[in-house]
Design a protein around this nucleic acid. Structure first.
Lengths: 205, 205, 205, 205
DNA sequence: AATGAATGAGATTTCATTCAT
DNA sequence: AATGAATGAAATCTCATTCAT
């Protein structure tokens, strides 16, 4: 039993190493320009070994996005659930997401890029799994917004549409960020974005 | 003389046909998954013919983006220059862009997707030409915002950063739109987005 | 009649222009790397026009070699026929060939390169026409040697084998010549080569 | 340890098989007309496999020439170093080279053909590596000649120029040889060539 | 379970030749 | 007779995946 557990632990460790290596390469080169050979080298495994952990390149890519997104959502959930008061959940959501991406820059690139392309992908399998990921993400944002909106002095907006607007606002910094100095944190942009958004959705007076 | 002019006209026509065909395929599959063979088939030319008009696949792709972007910017410029009154230019910009994308759905997909990926491209040549395109676009948005902000009751925000925020807001609908019914127009979302943005940037009271 | 003759003259002129242009390009790039497009540009004709004068690329190439070789042989013949005295024909042959190549550097490159490759060419048609050219050349050299050998104090060597030896000797400078200054003439090497050869074949004492 | 050594051995074997197959095809068709597909078929490997051993077509070609030339030079060196007596080194060199080419007919074709064309190659990379090969070869011949000339009753000739003459003499048989019966050996021509050359360079009396 | 050499389908690009004008 | 745009076959090279060790 204990022995099996150790095996299981080792399996997970190696799998995670591969995911991390893949994250580095995919984020730097994009899906198509990344080769299995390079991921293998980065992970310090042989090429063939990758296929013991993942069905293929696409599966590795999707698994990476799914698992990291789950992590992101778990983190957002935990942070947001603490917040109380009108607009506080949204404020908290923005801060949390920025903070998460600061610590996961590589994943950030993949997440945003893919979010803007996956819909019109030819590969149906790829589309389906990705679709689920982003639906879950948007659903969570929409729910957060809904909770906040109803309790505060906000306009009566469609939460789902508003969620897209907020997501777009957050993503917008993707284009500038890679250029800016490595030291600059997304987190510091949170107040700027928060203010625009909250004012944007508040009730007219 | 007349003959030369006709040749030139025919050349332009064929070139435009190729660009349009390329637009369809690139928008459906993305750059890497698109093959020259498919563009050729779509354009009803032989593969080799494409190389009489463009240096290669990348050149075709970039030319498409550059020329369509110029068209977009020209259109935006024309529309925006008519507007007067506080916030009117921004309102007009949003409406114009949405209208343009309604008529150029395929290009829209390419434009937005590329805008979110080009920064970390490997190919330096591709990056350079794209960079110029998006700089020009953001510059225009920033200038429009600046003009409007100073004349209205708006907060004193950095125009460039605000431009990114607005661009992100507009782009945000890319993820939903392809799914929604073909009849639904981006143009109809303009008021919703405009309101969020204008309120978001106005002076606190 | 006169009109036809003028047409004929013009035809020949244009044909010669193409040959000369082809000579320049073929000598610079070799057969395979040369494109019809480049020959056309160099000759200031359209690509299609070349096909009114030659059946295709290979035909153009072979025609060029054949006609220039005829010219070379005619020249050698004329020069050598003047010579009298033991070894004089050979001496004269070497001088004449070097002189001709000094004036036809482009053709020289083609001639020597092709001489060393044609035998194992895949294209049978090409081989046959080239074979004839070089046989004629070697035949002439062999005949010249034979004439000379029998009248002088020379060993009784197989003229054909000796002709190959002489041809090899002459060609040997091809590798150095393109490197040496443009001003340096092959003609100046004639005495050096002549001496080696004549001594090499004379009777032992 | 033993395992690694075996892998290494197998690698070398396969690499050599490819080189040999390439030698056959290149010698029969020349560089440009040879396709990787044909080399692969000849070597009984898949096309892609060739690229595990060589960077590309040119690299394969140059590697072949470089390695075979090294073999040739090593062999010549060994043979010539044994010779003593005036003219003996040169006699030995000619015999050795002819003997080597008898056993490496395919390589012989490539070596001679390339030697006569490489100078005006477009590809700079190809030129550079080849240049080195032929410089080394000529240097060796020149040194051999120099050693011999100074000890014998020979004229005071420039060793380098004389080396070119000798190389030309040896190469001259390339044109006849492929035609002649397979049984005929270059080696048998050695005395004929040796005599012409040695007499050609000896002191006048 | 891990390896990495071999595979071969598939992509881009070139260019001799044709043919409508 | 001259043109040059269109053609499409053919060549090089890449890389995800397999499989014998």
């Amino acid at each position: 039993m204990a022995k099996l557990a150790r095996k299981e632990r080792e399996y997970r460790t190696r799998r995670a190493e591969i995911i991390t290596a893949a994250e580095r390469v995919f984020s730097a080169k994009g899906f198509d320009k990344t080769t299995m050979e390079e991921i293998a080298r980065e992970a310090e495994f042989a090429e063939g070994t990758l296929y013991n952990f993942f069905k293929g390149k696409i599966d590795l890519y999707l698994s990476l996005i799914e698992e990291k997104s789950e992590e992101l959502l778990g983190y957002l959930h935990k942070q947001v659930s603490k917040a109380v008061g009108a607009g506080e959940k949204i404020r908290c959501l923005i801060k949390a997401q920025m903070g998460f991406f600061d610590k996961n820059r590589n994943f950030f690139k993949i997440f945003v890029r893919e979010r803007n392309s996956f819909e019109w992908m030819a590969q149906k399998d790829r589309t389906k799994r990705l679709s689920k990921v982003y639906q879950t993400y948007i659903d969570f944002v929409a729910r957060t917004i809904k909770d906040d909106l109803k309790r505060g002095e906000f306009r009566n907006l469609n939460p789902r549409e508003t969620a897209y607007a907020l997501a777009g606002l957050l993503n917008s910094f993707v284009c500038r960020w890679p250029k800016s100095s490595k030291k600059e944190r997304l987190f510091d942009q949170a107040p700027f974005l928060t203010e625009i958004f909250l004012k944007g959705v508040q009730k007219s007076r």
